[in-house]
């Protein structure tokens, strides 16, 4: 029973990692760039929701504030691409990596300047109540996290596989020039994916802030989520979820059964092991380049 409880709480945590990892994968899938600021996006989304909902700020009802903050983050993501990242079009991936790391620093500073550095909780209706299922206690927010993550992953997966826009996004990343020739507006498509990933980050942020306190440094969680995305296989949406769940489940078990000091190593040690033995993740998307 004990293990089951650990498993369930691990799954709920893993879903949050999975949600952030989804944001990484979305952008990578459509633009071949890695957004290292995704964790800070999540933090910003959480603070936007917090600023709209909490009594000491704007005190809007939660069910109005949540969609609003998702919208705000989507617009912000699109504008970020339009104003900043589009200028890097055609330059190396590493330039984008460094740019987004720097962006993360700036976002963290701005969030700290606006909302302060004290940890705050989102006053969300999700954060109250527990559900007991056959001896396993599950809080409402954990349940909400799991349901939303699974739904979002399925929706986004279907979006990439089935819709015209989703296919256009994949085409734009697989071969930019061919995509141009086929009449795909590559730059606008890339802007849209930044918008979608901003919205995903906002969802992750709202759920994470309902689970516990937020402070501007919470964005560093993004590193763990990034590890999750790589374990799952960068570029694969189900892989992001699987990777997130693996990292999420490993953590409580490692904390329980391994000596202190070894437990926080576990996710990264796993990451290195995966990179050594399956360099492109569990759900691999790459084959050797042929010349």
């Amino acid at each position: 029973m004990d293990q089951l409880q650990l498993l369930v709480s691990g799954l709920a945590n893993g879903c949050v990692y999975g949600l952030i990892a989804l944001g990484f994968v979305l952008i990578y899938k459509a633009t071949e760039a890695v957004n290292f600021a995704q964790g800070d996006f999540m933090m910003l989304g959480a603070f936007v929701a917090l600023g709209l909902t909490n009594a000491e700020y704007m005190a809007l009802p939660f069910w109005l504030a949540a969609p609003l903050s998702i919208l705000v983050m989507a617009v912000l993501g699109y504008l970020l691409d339009l104003l900043v990242l589009r200028r890097l079009f055609g330059q190396s991936q590493i330039a984008v990596v460094i740019l987004t790391i720097a962006l993360g620093f700036v976002i963290r500073f701005v969030a700290g300047a606006i909302w302060g550095h004290e940890p705050q909780t989102l006053q969300s209706p999700l954060s109250q109540g527990d559900i007991s299922l056959g001896g396993v206690v599950l809080s409402v927010v954990d349940l909400a996290v799991i349901v939303v993550t699974v739904l979002l992953t399925i929706t986004l997966y279907q979006f990439f596989q089935r819709t015209r826009l989703g296919l256009a996004m994949q085409a734009a990343s697989q071969n930019q020039m061919a995509a141009y020739v086929m009449g795909i507006p590559v730059k606008r498509v890339q802007g849209l994916i930044w918008g979608i990933s901003g919205a995903t980050a906002a969802v992750a942020g709202i759920l994470f802030a309902s689970k516990g306190a937020m402070d501007p440094n919470a964005g560093l969680l993004g590193i763990k989520a990034f590890a999750a995305a790589v374990i799952g296989g960068f570029g694969s949406l189900p892989g992001a979820l699987v990777g997130g769940l693996i990292v999420g489940v490993i953590e409580p078990f490692a904390a329980r059964y391994l000596a202190a000091g070894y437990s926080q190593i576990a996710p990264y040690a796993l990451l290195l092991a995966v990179l050594v033995f399956r360099p492109h993740g569990l759900i691999s998307q790459t084959r050797m380049k042929k010349v």
Binding site: I94, F234, A269, L272, P279
Partner: peptide, 24 residues
């Protein structure tokens, strides 16, 4: 092991090394 990795995967592996160094 790292030389089998390209660009982003190498960056990730080295991040992991950096995080691990603290704990080690």
């Amino acid at each position: 092991p790292a030389i089998r990795l390209h660009g982003i995967y190498l960056a990730m592996a080295t991040i992991a090394v950096s995080v691990l160094a603290d704990d080690v």
